[in-house]
């Protein structure tokens, strides 16, 4: 468990987002500006390009560089949001042993960054609606003695539930909020990409 695992995770995320690019864009075309799939794909392809050219000694450096890349390459609001997530996640891991507890702290730091940046609340129909239950499930699993893989699997499953629960919500943040009531009945693209990222983590980080 080290830098290589995290590199594998980021590459796996890039593949997953690339495969789901059309799906995410389709979700976004219902309630947003139809660019989430393309934006995330572009951002993570840039991350892959960066990984191909650079080698990292520390996980924190890796994640921060990935975050900066997303900030510059995604384009939409998910750029600063996921960018902030990886920057804060990386910062929190600096000098830490990669225990399930430390990674939990890193995830929390990242999600707090997302909240500070986007000022979303639970139920606003945003990626936070997937992050919040995921963190809760992760913490519970770790507290119950689970290993990292099990905890991340629990987090991904909770995120998927949170993602599904965004369907009936009325969006209160982002471009979808302009649609008001018409945003209800559609799954939130941000919560969907968050779930993909966590599912990838469950596959690759253990």
């Amino acid at each position: 468990m080290g830098v290589d695992s995290f590199v594998s995770w980021l590459r796996d995320v890039a593949g997953s987002l690339h495969d789901n690019s059309a799906y995410l864009t389709e979700l976004d075309s219902a309630i947003g500006d139809a660019d989430h799939g393309a934006n995330m794909d572009r951002g993570f392809q840039a991350v892959v390009g960066m990984l191909d050219e650079t080698s990292f000694d520390g996980t924190d450096e890796l994640l921060k560089k990935a975050g900066m890349t997303l900030v510059s390459k995604v384009g939409g609001a998910s750029g600063p949001l996921y960018g902030t997530f990886f920057l804060r996640f990386g910062t929190a891991l600096a000098g830490a042993d990669l225990t399930p507890e430390a990674i939990g702290k890193g995830l929390h730091a990242g999600v707090e960054g997302v909240l500070a940046r986007g000022k979303a609340e639970l139920g606003d129909k945003t990626m936070y609606d997937a992050w919040a239950p995921a963190l809760e499930a992760y913490d519970a699993a770790v507290a119950g003695g689970s290993d990292l893989g099990t905890a991340l699997t629990a987090a991904a499953e909770a995120a998927a539930k949170g993602r599904d629960a965004t369907i009936p919500l009325v969006a209160r943040k982002g471009r979808a909020s302009y649609l008001g009531e018409r945003s209800a009945g559609h799954q939130d693209p941000g919560a969907t990409s968050t779930t993909l990222i966590l599912e990838s983590a469950a596959r690759t980080l253990s």
């Binding site: 900066m68 900030v71 510059s72 390459k73 995604v74 384009g75 939409g76 750029g79 600063p80």
Partner: peptide, 13 residues
């Protein structure tokens, strides 16, 4: 824009 034709914003820019 991310470039002259791609919509988007970049905090670094």
């Amino acid at each position: 824009g991310l470039d002259t034709t791609t919509f988007g914003t970049d905090a670094m820019a």
